[in-house]
Design a protein around this nucleic acid. Sequence first.
DNA 1: CTGTTAAGTTTACAGTGTAAAGTTTTTGTG
DNA 2: CACAAAAACTTTACACTGTAAACTTAACAG
Lengths: 235, 235
Amino acid sequence: MSSMTDSTQKTAYHHGNLREALLDSALLAVESGGLDKLSLRGLAKSVGVTPTAVYSHFKDKNDLLIAVHTVGFKQLREAMEQSLTALPKAARGEDKVRALGLSYMHFAQTQPHLFDAMFFRPPDLSQVTKEKIEEGVGSERLLRDTLIEMLEESQGARLSDAQAAVAAFSAWALVHGVSTLLRNGCVDAAIFCESWPEDFSDQHPQSRQAEIIEQLLDIQIAGLKASVQAIRKNP
Amino acid sequence: MSSMTDSTQKTAYHHGNLREALLDSALLAVESGGLDKLSLRGLAKSVGVTPTAVYSHFKDKNDLLIAVHTVGFKQLREAMEQSLTALPKAARGEDKVRALGLSYMHFAQTQPHLFDAMFFRPPDLSQVTKEKIEEGVGSERLLRDTLIEMLEESQGARLSDAQAAVAAFSAWALVHGVSTLLRNGCVDAAIFCESWPEDFSDQHPQSRQAEIIEQLLDIQIAGLKASVQAIRKNP
DNA sequence: CTGTTAAGTTTACAGTGTAAAGTTTTTGTG
DNA sequence: CACAAAAACTTTACACTGTAAACTTAACAG
């Protein structure tokens, strides 16, 4: 149970697991306050270490941001996977697709700053880790396979890889667009305020929003089914 | 022709039209290098003025960012409007919808940093100018009206305000999602690399991308039409 | 001519990322 | 175990950032 080479050992001088402590603290700081407020110095102080100690574990700030990035993509993927396992076993493909989309938007809305860090503020892409890319690819594959399942079920059509990729891109783009437009005030200001002024600030904007999101998923799914249908008729 | 109160007059001390010069320079700096590289000091130096002179015309950096923001939304709106006027007069509603979507994505791709500044990095929203909101609302109304035109043409259905707003949100979200996913490397890494490895880095990725974008518009438009149809059958 | 005001400048300060060199601890050898 | 090498962390230093305060210059109105 006790190991000499345990990486969590501490001394006065050596922190023991500074890297993880910094990363944890960074995630915490990002979730509450956003990326702009994240400073290496503040981070170092929060874990009780000297400012430049960070450079023993991260090449520079961008390197740390990439690590945060990677964790975010892992969490997003896990949230998506969990939204599927939470479904009843007999769930249809379409239910799964909806669950995936909802979990994505839910992630964006409950962890807005982390979502920002992942997409709005991509660190220098040239030095992005393979680990992160694999997380992203994994999420995309999950979506793609689920879409294939749905479309085969309802349309009885076997999709080519290219078709499935386009379908996944389409669904992903929609859900991602919704997430980011809701994130900054665009939609509130441009749509809801004008159309349902009483709903927006007063009554039950939350449930109204959920209602609208369901309609957006309806539209997207209908479009996917229709376009598959069109391809079958006119290949 | 010559006016004593011309705001472009210059002296050694007074710049004359510092505010606009700063804004122009800021836009230039943003377009080439992104927001991270934009510093008030560099900006001041680029127009040949002392660092703190900026504060005579902008409350602080955020205030300047809001101005950049506003210009961006105006440019986007103008690009969208111009994409409509460039169409042949007999163009159908669907052609117009496609033109709007393409101009939006084109804007995002040709002015990526400005697009970032507008959406990825919204300045403090609490003190956003009415002017900018009106630009955004105007663009949204343009999209909404065009969608109404399209759906009335093809489905013969008169949309309620709420239906039109949801349709506009859906189309906007898709196009916005595509823009932002293409912007950071997500899609390249997650989709194109895997599905068309030879196309991606070699042959004609540009035209392949345009092809895919057309398919995305197909899907979205098909979904909108289908959902309007569904509402008519099952109100 | 004379206040007032707007537009710039000077000076100053706290905060940032990070480079370089020094110190302490751990670790991998003979 | 001893000892060199490497890893982890500190100290010091620098250039750069946004911005507050006080001062100076120019334009203008009475």
